Simulated assay, not measured.
Amino acid sequence: MKQLTTILLTLGVFMMAFAGSEEKVLANESNINDANQVLNIAHRGASGYAPENTMAAFEKAVDMKADMFELDVQMSKDGELVVIHDTTVDRTTDGTGKVGDLTYDELQKLDAGSFFSEEFHGERIPTLGDVLDEYRGKTGILIEVKSPSLYPGIEEKIAEELEKRNLDKPNNDKIIVQSFDHDSVQTFHSILPDVPVGVLLSYSSNGISDQQLTEFASYAEYVNPSKNMMDAELVSRIHDFDMETHPWTVRDRESAQFLLEIGADGIITDYPDYVEPRQ
């Protein structure tokens, strides 16, 4: 009997050790899978396939299973937050004039789809609220504050839209706010410090200094340069400052593959189908 008890105890210890090692293997596999993921961010929605910054482009991004879509926010003459890239409506609508000189009602009358294809005739310029109401919980949303110097108080208005929808909570990785105007990013961060923010950078032959990265790291979670600035060393340096990077804007498969290979955390692209998980 004593011998049988000893055998059973030994077997039990062996099974526990095996289970522990199996859990460790599974945990390691999970970590590897996490490391292999890259955020697929549809630029102005899936703008390679539908008119940029419209509900059609955002719907296409969701259909193509992008992790997030990016959009641009400006302000109408009467203070509505509208989703459009250029500071004029000339390129992407059938109207003319500056966004900030037109009222919300005037902007709503414009056709924002036909410039891309007659298939999208009648697409309208959405408001930020429209987009948040339709897509929160369905996908992540990367909000770019566009030309904020033209729209005093725009950061507060964006914050209000997020607060109304409980999108200002800690650990909410479904909303990120970014801008080329780094003062604006800091202003927004001071209003809603729990919402992650990113700094956008245009191409510079001087690169990004450690001094800049130190400054960015004091308030931002993301450094998002032009893809033409990117290499493995820059990705590593950004990571050394505990930030992540989502380069922009990919319009060919070769660029997508390059950014995957150097370890970018996300890829902002007009074509979500060009971004495949790392192997």
Rank of each mutant, 00 (worst) to 15 (best):
N28G: 15
Y203F: 14
P126A: 01
A264K: 04
V185G: 10
N224P: 10
A35Q: 02
K24N: 11
Y271P: 02
D86F: 03
G140H: 07
E123M: 06
L8S: 14
G100W: 06
G100L: 08
V145T: 12
K65L: 09
M64F: 12
D240S: 15
M75E: 15
D265L: 12
V83S: 06
I208R: 01
V83G: 05
G140K: 09
I208S: 03
P170D: 05
S179T: 03
L162T: 01
E215Y: 07
S209C: 11
E233I: 07
A61M: 00
Q74G: 09
S117G: 09
E52T: 01
D86W: 02
A159L: 02
S209N: 11
G263A: 05
A57Y: 02
N28R: 15
E144L: 14
E155A: 10
K138H: 04
S21P: 05
D194G: 14
P272E: 00
G263L: 04
I154Q: 08
H239Q: 07
M230I: 07
F241I: 13
S117C: 10
I143Q: 15
P148D: 09
T139I: 09
V185M: 13
A66Q: 11
S117L: 09
D231K: 07
G97Y: 00
I32F: 12
Q257P: 08
L132C: 05
N40P: 13
V177N: 06
T93K: 04
S114T: 12
M230Q: 06
P193C: 08
T5R: 08
V99K: 06
A112K: 00
G79V: 07
G263D: 03
M64S: 14
K227L: 13
D242A: 14
R251K: 12
V25Y: 15
D130L: 04
D273M: 14
D242R: 15
Y222E: 00
L102T: 02
V38K: 03
T127I: 02
N31C: 07
E123C: 02
A35S: 02
F216E: 05
M55V: 04
E123V: 00
P152S: 10
A112L: 00
G129P: 09
K227P: 09
Q108I: 13
R237T: 04
K65R: 10
E29D: 14
K138V: 03
Y151K: 10
D101P: 01
N224C: 12
M16Q: 11
A50D: 00
L8K: 11
S117A: 11
A17H: 15
K109V: 15
S114D: 12
I191Y: 04
K65P: 05
